[in-house]
Design a binder for these strands. Structure first.
Length: 270
DNA sequence: ATGCACTCCTGAACGC
DNA sequence: TGCGTTCAGGAGTGCA
C-alpha cells in the first residue's frame, strides 16, 4: 500500500524530525520484521548523526555520519510515528533523539530494515535490480517499449514488476492503466508504441499528483505526523467495483489478476 | 528465460 | 453476540 508517493511522503515527513539529529539510542524491540533485523542495528546506529534521508523505489534510505545507511521498506503496514508514552505492541524499532522518540510501527511485519555502507547502497541486492525511477528521464516511452517487446505477460504485471519501473504498486497500476485507456490484461508485447508512450506520461502525472497530495492512505497507512493523507479520495477505479466509471458511467469491474484485485472499466480500457 | 503460485503477517470486514 | 473465514498486498522464492 505504501507505494512510491507514500514512501516519498514518509521520507519527507521524517526529514525535519531526523536530519542533523544524533541518534541517542536505536532499539530493536524484536529480532525480525519480514527478515531478521541487523543484529548490530543498535550498536551501529546509536550515537550516529542522520545526514541524509532519501528514497529509492519504495525503499527509504537513512544516511549517517558513521558511513552506514539504513535501508528500510514499509511493506504493507509500516509507518513512523512520534511516541508519547510507552511503545505499543507493534512499535518494533525506536529511534531516540533529543526531539523525542520516533517509532517504526508495522503490525503486519512485511517491512524490513538493512544496514549497508553508504557507498554500497546502489549495489545492495535489493536495490541493484530495480528499474528506473518513474519520475526520471530514464523511464521513458522507448524504455517501456523495450521492456514490453516480445513479452507475453499482461501490461499490469509488467508495471508491477519492479525491474520495469520502480515503485508502482497495485493501486497506481490500476489508476494509470485507466487513465491511459489500456485494459490491464492486455498482453504487454502487443500494445502499440504510442499507447505505451501515453502510459508513461500518465504514470508520471499520476504519481506527481499523488505526491503533491501528500501520498494516499489506505486504511492503515498514515503519514509520519499521524495525519491521514487524502489522495485515496481521488482514486477513479481502484476499490470502486460496481460504481459508475468516471469516464462513461458503465460499472467498474473487479477481477483477479495474479492473485491481486484489478479494477478497470471494460468499456473505456481496451 | 519466463510467468505463475505460494508465502510471510495481522486486523478489518463479512457471513452464518 | 460471537465465532470462523476471507481478504488486503510487496516482493522474494521456488516451481513448471
Amino acid at each position: 500500500m505504501p507505494e512510491l508517493p507514500e514512501v516519498e511522503t514518509v521520507v519527507r515527513g521524517l526529514q525535519p524530525l531526523l536530519l542533523g539529529q544524533r541518534l541517542g539510542q536505536v532499539i530493536a524491540r524484536r529480532p525480525d520484521l519480514r527478515w531478521p533485523l541487523p543484529p548490530d542495528l543498535g550498536q551501529r546506529l546509536t550515537g550516529a548523526t542522520v545526514t541524509g534521508l532519501k528514497r529509492r523505489a519504495k525503499y527509504g534510505l537513512m544516511e549517517t555520519d558513521r558511513g552506514d545507511t539504513l535501508i528500510f521498506h514499509l511493506g504493507m503496514s509500516g509507518r513512523f510515528h512520534q511516541l508519547t508514552g510507552a511503545p505499543g505492541t507493534h512499535d518494533h524499532v525506536l529511534f531516540v533523539t533529543q526531539q523525542g522518540t520516533l517509532a517504526y510501527n508495522d503490525h503486519r511485519r512485511f517491512g524490513s530494515m538493512h544496514l549497508t555502507p553508504t557507498p554500497e547502497v546502489a549495489a545492495h541486492p535489493l536495490i541493484a535490480p530495480i528499474g528506473p525511477e518513474p519520475l526520471s528521464d530514464a523511464f521513458s516511452g522507448p524504455w517501456l517499449q523495450a521492456r514490453a517487446a516480445g513479452r507475453f505477460t499482461s501490461i499490469k504485471a509488467l508495471l508491477l514488476d519492479q525491474h520495469t519501473v520502480a515503485g508502482i504498486g497495485n493501486i497506481y497500476a490500476c489508476e494509470a492503466l485507466f487513465e491511459a485507456g489500456i485494459n490491464p490484461v492486455r498482453m504487454a508485447g502487443a500494445i502499440a508504441p504510442k499507447r505505451l508512450d501515453r502510459l508513461v506520461d500518465v504514470i508520471k502525472a499520476t504519481l506527481d499528483r499523488a505526491i503533491a497530495a501528500g501520498g494516499s492512505t489506505l486504511r492503515d497507512h498514515a503519514q509520519v505526523s499521524g495525519d491521514l493523507g487524502y489522495f485515496q479520495h481521488s482514486f477513479r477505479v481502484y476499490g470502486r467495483a460496481g460504481e459508475p466509471c468516471p469516464g462513461c458511467g458503465a460499472p467498474v469491474r473487479r477481477r483477479v489478476q495474479q492473485g491481486r484485485s484489478t479494477f478497470h472499466c471494460p468499456a473505456c480500457q481496451r
